[in-house]
C-alpha cells in the first residue's frame, strides 16, 4: 500500500453521514476468486459422479462445441449490462443475421458452384451477417441515446422487431441445406481445437482488450457507474453507448453464424432461452446489473461452470428441464452470496 504523503490514512466517513449506500463496495477480485473455487468444485463434483463419461476427450470435445454460443451471447449481454442497460434483442439479432447469412449462402449460390465460388458466397454471407448485426445494434443504440427510451424497452421492442423481420423474410420457414463447406468449417477443428471454441476465444480476447486495454472500456465502465458524471467529465456518452450496442449486435451476429453451422439451418425463432442464459452467465460472472462493473474472466468462469454442470448432468441422463431448475437456483444463490459478502464487507469497513 503506497501512501504518497506519509500521512496516516484518514478514517473513513461514517455510513450514516452519506445518503448513498455503501452496499456496492466491491473489490471485484474476491468474487473472481470465489467463482474460480465454485468452478473447481463443480468440476470435481461432476468428475467424481461420473468419471468415465465426464472425464473423457469426447466429453470435452462436445462441451467445446456447446458453450461457445451462450458464451458469446453472454459477452454481448455483459457489455450492455456494464453500461447500465440490458440487451434483450441479442437472440433476435442472431436469428435475423443467421437467416441473412443462410439466404446469401443457400439462395444466391448457383447449383453447380465450384469450391472457390462457394467460398466466395460463404464469405459474402458472413460479411452480410456481421453487417446486419452491426446495423441492428446501432439501431438499438440510436433508440436509446437519441430518442431516450430505456434500454430494456428498446430491446424488448427490437427483439420482436428483428425476429419479426426474420419471420417476414422467411415466411416462418426454416432455411436448410447450407453449403457443405460452411458446415464443415463450422463443425471442424483446427488441430484439436473445434472452430466454435476458437471463435469463443477470439471473442474473449476481443472483449478483454476492449474492456481493459482500450480507453473505450474505461469510458464504458464509468458511464455505467454514473452517466451524469461521465457526461460532465467529457465522455461522449452517446458515442460510447452506440459503440456498446453495436458491438453487442456484432457479437450476436457471430453467435448466429456459429448456430447456423451447428444446426445446418437458420430459423427465425431459434433459441429464445439463450436470453435468460446470457443474463444468468453475466450476473453469475460478476457483472453488476446496476451497471459499472464486469470482468471478462468472471464471464469465462461462469460459462465453464455452467457447462461442467450441464455436461455432468447430461452424463447422469438428467433432462434439460432439470438444468433449467439448477440454473435458476445457481443464479439466485450466486446473487445472494455476492450481496451477503458485500454487506459483510461494508460492516467490516465501518
Amino acid at each position: 500500500m503506497t501512501n504518497p504523503n506519509g500521512n496516516s490514512p484518514e478514517p473513513i466517513t461514517p455510513i450514516s453521514r452519506s445518503s448513498f449506500s455503501l452496499q456496492r463496495y466491491l473489490p471485484q477480485d474476491a468474487s473472481i476468486t470465489r467463482l474460480f473455487i465454485i468452478m473447481l468444485v463443480v468440476f470435481v463434483l461432476m468428475a467424481g459422479i461420473s468419471p468415465n463419461t465426464f472425464l473423457s476427450l469426447d466429453s470435452f470435445t462436445s462441451m467445446s462445441f456447446q458453450f461457445p454460443v451462450f458464451g458469446i451471447f453472454a459477452f454481448a449481454m455483459m457489455l450492455s449490462m456494464i453500461s447500465g442497460g440490458i440487451d434483450l434483442s441479442i437472440v433476435g439479432i442472431a436469428n435475423l443475421t443467421s437467416i441473412i447469412a443462410a439466404s446469401v449462402m443457400v439462395r444466391m449460390l448457383p447449383a453447380e458452384a465450384s469450391a472457390s465460388e462457394s467460398l466466395l458466397y460463404i464469405l459474402l454471407g458472413v460479411a452480410a451477417a456481421l453487417m446486419v448485426g452491426l446495423v441492428c445494434g446501432l439501431f438499438n443504440g440510436f433508440a436509446i441515446t437519441k430518442i431516450g427510451i430505456p434500454p430494456i424497452l428498446v430491446t424488448l421492442g427490437t427483439m420482436q422487431l428483428f425476429m419479426g423481420i426474420a419471420i417476414i423474410v422467411t415466411k416462418g420457414q426454416a432455411i436448410v441445406g447450407l453449403p457443405e463447406l460452411y458446415t464443415k468449417i463450422g463443425n471442424g477443428s483446427l488441430w484439436i481445437f473445434p472452430v466454435p471454441l476458437l471463435m469463443f476465444c477470439l471473442c474473449i480476447l476481443g472483449t478483454y482488450v476492449l474492456l481493459n486495454k482500450q480507453s473505450y472500456g474505461m469510458k464504458l465502465q464509468m458511464l455505467g457507474a454514473n452517466p451524469t458524471a461521465s457526461f460532465f467529465s467529457g465522455v461522449n456518452n452517446t458515442r460510447v453507448l452506440l459503440t456498446t450496442y453495436a458491438i453487442s449486435g456484432v457479437l450476436a451476429a457471430i453467435a448466429g453464424l456459429v448456430i447456423v453451422a451447428q444446426t445446418n439451418s437458420a430459423k427465425a425463432d431459434y433459441g429464445t432461452s439463450y436470453i435468460l442464459q446470457a443474463i444468468l452467465v453475466a450476473v453469475m460472472g460478476g457483472v453488476d446489473p446496476r451497471g459499472g462493473f464486469g470482468k471478462v474472466a468472471g464471464i469465462v468462469m461462469a460459462v465453464l461452470t455452467l457447462q461442467f454442470l450441464s455436461s455432468g448432468l447430461n452424463a447422469l441422463h438428467v433432462g434439460n428441464f432439470f438444468k433449467d431448475f439448477m440454473w435458476g437456483i445457481v443464479l439466485l444463490l450466486v446473487m445472494v452470496i455476492n450481496e451477503w459478502s458485500n454487506r459483510r464487507k461494508v460492516r467490516s469497513i465501518s
Binding site: M222, A225, N226, T228, A229
Partner: peptide
Amino acid sequence: LTEGLFLEQ
C-alpha cells in the same frame, strides 16, 4: 456526488 464523482469507481 452526482455530477463530479463516480462513487463506486
